[in-house]
Write a protein that binds this DNA or RNA. Structure first.
Lengths: 167, 167
DNA sequence: CTAATAGTTGACTAAATCACTCGGGTATGG
DNA sequence: CCATACCCGAGTGATTTAGTCAACTATTAG
């Protein structure tokens, strides 16, 4: 599993979708405006989410996206993995970078860490997040300023550049 | 905090150092041979570890590195942070990428994750690792094949490319 | 003294990845 | 038929990774 701002954007967008579920569908443009993410970038992310069956789409005017599953059945781990398609088998467990064709000294450490992170992220669903008071507070704040007219260019300057992976 | 193969190499090398503590010093060339890491690369890593006061060095023939602290006082988190000098304050907590100059929807989630990972890695010291049966097994295997003559070129092809960050 | 050892430093590099943008599609409701 | 919204692929600049190379400096054995 990998953790980049890409994955974080995806989770944020999915949470926005979950929050606005009461509409039939939510347009990406709305999510883009509310969360300050570039529209074209969102399109990229949602293409992957759709391929993984996490969201469903309706085309044409009035169309948009909706969750393909109940919010309680979509975990953060699922979203992150959908985005960072890690068919990335080149892993310490049986590979050469582990030195002598076997486990390296710290193999166990990293795999245990990976397990913990996965467990944490898999234990949190969109439903969990929606009920979080901290989240609701932000939702409320965003509702008061319904449409900040963000020019198509000046959005989403992710200044921080941080990653997190774990096989 | 960031987690890359760089940090992993550092932890592996430090663990090797801890395992061979009975010698006064351990030469980087020995670590390089045992762990299959390029010598020049190790030099880079140990320069940082030294600046952070985690290792001490002795120059000249017979010289090498040793732990600057008891193994029980060096945690994995310290090593990783020494390598990925993250004076990297550009974080969600008070930055613009969090959208409306305040917390973004998922701020809490990521900071909680970061906390957990840090706690996990800070709870494990070199002393912990040395006593790990899995580690001892690998050490034993490496001891049986004391010097595999690795030509200076064909070392350290880290095929996997994975990162892990968490502010 | 001098050669060999071993750490110290800095500049450099190829390849990969990230975080996007751009431009054009295609379905669909009014 | 046209505006809306999803769909898709290619391209790009900046950054990072995972190193390499070359030239030091300190120390010790002989």
């Amino acid at each position: 599993m990998k953790l980049t701002t890409k994955g974080r954007y995806a989770v944020t967008a999915m949470l926005d979708l979950a929050v606005h579920q009461h509409h039939d569908t939510v347009a990406l443009a709305d999510i883009a405006a509310r969360q300050g993410i570039s529209l074209s970038y969102l399109e990229q992310l949602f293409a992957k989410l759709r391929r993984r069956g996490l969201v469903a789409s309706v085309r044409g005017p009035g169309g948009g996206y909706s969750l393909a599953l109940p919010a309680a059945q979509i975990s953060v781990a699922q979203i992150v993995m959908a985005i960072n398609e890690n068919i990335d088998a080149t892993r310490c467990g049986g590979e050469k970078n582990c030195h002598g064709e076997e486990r390296c000294l710290t193999h166990q450490l990293w795999s245990e860490l990976s397990r913990r992170i996965y467990e944490f992220l898999d234990g949190i669903t969109l439903a969990t997040l929606v009920t979080e008071p901290e989240v609701q507070e932000v939702v409320l704040r965003q509702a008061k300023r319904p449409k900040l007219g963000v020019p198509r260019n000046e959005i989403a300057h992710g200044s921080s550049y941080e990653k997190a992976d774990l096989s």
